[in-house]
Amino acid sequence: MTASDQRAAGRLALPRYSSAAGVHPPLDCPGYKSSRLRAPSQPLVPMPQRLTEITGPLFGAERVTAGDADLTTGRGGEPLGERIIVSGRVLDSDGRPVPDTLIEIWQANASGRYAHKVDDHPAPLDPNFTGAGRCVTDSLGRYRFLTIKPGAYPWRNHFNAWRPAHIHFSLFGRAFTQRLVTQMYFPADPLFPLDPIFNSIPDPAARARLISALDMELTQPDWALGYRWDIVLRGRTATVFETEGK
């Protein structure tokens, strides 16, 4: 490191990302069997946000090709199931849109089967549906996917366990601290009270933020229902570090 870097270090004004304390599920979740051998047993060590944490990869349009946001075409024929539009905005918790950021999604087909060799649920695969999509938010943080409503499916967590229908979402945001992978659910799913993953989120209000809303303005008549879902990442505030005496 050069002397000028050292001097610059004394003047570093870094944004700071707000705490997500109490929002995310605790890693140790006895009702979720897969967490038993995978959740760390030691408490997380607090780490101040410095240069590596307040920066991050800025993936955008270069990672997406035409048609990536449409999961219903490009496979030779139309997939079976209920065609839906999923759209919303990516914001930070201070209400600012997160523009030009990559969103990746994956999901089961209409029968509740994933196009993955490990999924042995005896429901039909759909040759016209792989269940993966990508898009980039626009300048206002908006995104839009066209897909098929995924089905509920059984899993081996406990006897007669079924997951509510969901779509997996992965977001980068603007910084390492904003990285988020989560799941979007559909309104009024009767499986909600039974699902340990959904209920791993302690705060019911936070849990409810994972549920999309039927939106008739987004819905296209005679063609596809629209579900609206906004995603909120940790907010950002500029902080100037005092340099006196350094």
Binding site: S18, W106, I201, R209
Partner: peptide, 20 residues
């Protein structure tokens, strides 16, 4: 401020469909 932040959920067993 954690108000309004979207909570995390697991990637599950089938992340290979969407992420690699």
């Amino acid at each position: 401020m954690s108000e309004g932040i979207t909570p995390s959920q697991t990637v599950g067993p089938f992340l290979a469909i969407g992420l690699p």
